[in-house]
Simulated assay, not measured.
Amino acid sequence: MSVDRVLKRLEEWIVVLVMSIMSLIAFANILSRGLVGYSLSFTEEITINLFVFLTFVGTAIGVRQNAHLGFTLIYDRANGVFKKGITLLVGVLMGGLFLVLVYFGLQMMLYQMELGQKTPSLGWPQWLFSLAMPLGALLCLYRTVQVTIMELREESLQGGESV
């Protein structure tokens, strides 16, 4: 089994697992409030932090499936060289964004570790939740590079060139 296939399965299982956990926690909180009149305050903390992780993994899946939003009028009307330039520019800009998120996510995480910062409700180390940002952005960066290379190859094949 290839690394890409394993990563694809991992992304999909993370989304399923995180969505399931978030749904169960939110449902338990609703039941608790409705039946007992007591709110489980820690559920909000977990749900919000899992949502951040889910957003990054979902973004990586979207990049992999080429499902991100885009305005393609200029791209669709462009010739081969201009199309390659647009593809490369978009890939570099997206890669730059994810590199910045990896860098600052790591900086934030290390700072939280240094301070020994804890989450308000659970008292867990905050950096555990903050780890979602650099890991998720790294996954997005990998998928951005992968998709950019694949699109450049496809454009070369359509244009009769070889990469």
Rank of each mutant, 00 (worst) to 15 (best):
M1C: 02
L7S: 03
L7M: 13
L10N: 04
W13F: 10
V15P: 05
V18C: 06
S20W: 12
S20H: 06
S20A: 11
S23W: 07
F27D: 08
F27N: 04
A28W: 04
I30Q: 06
I30W: 10
S32L: 02
R33C: 04
L35V: 14
V36S: 05
T43H: 01
T43S: 12
T47W: 03
I48F: 10
N49E: 09
N49V: 04
L50H: 06
F53S: 00
F56V: 13
V57R: 02
T59K: 01
A60L: 11
I61H: 03
G62E: 14
N66G: 11
G70A: 10
F71M: 10
L73M: 10
D76W: 07
A78Y: 05
G80M: 10
K83E: 08
K83H: 08
G85H: 07
L89S: 14
G95T: 12
L97H: 00
V100Q: 04
V100H: 00
Y103F: 09
Q107I: 07
M109V: 09
M113Q: 12
Q117E: 14
K118I: 08
T119R: 02
P120K: 15
S130A: 01
L131F: 04
L131G: 13
A137S: 12
C140I: 00
C140N: 03
L141N: 03
Y142T: 03
Q146F: 05
T148G: 07
I149V: 15
L152Q: 02
R153P: 06
E154Q: 09
E154G: 13
E155A: 03
Q158D: 11
G160H: 12
E161H: 08
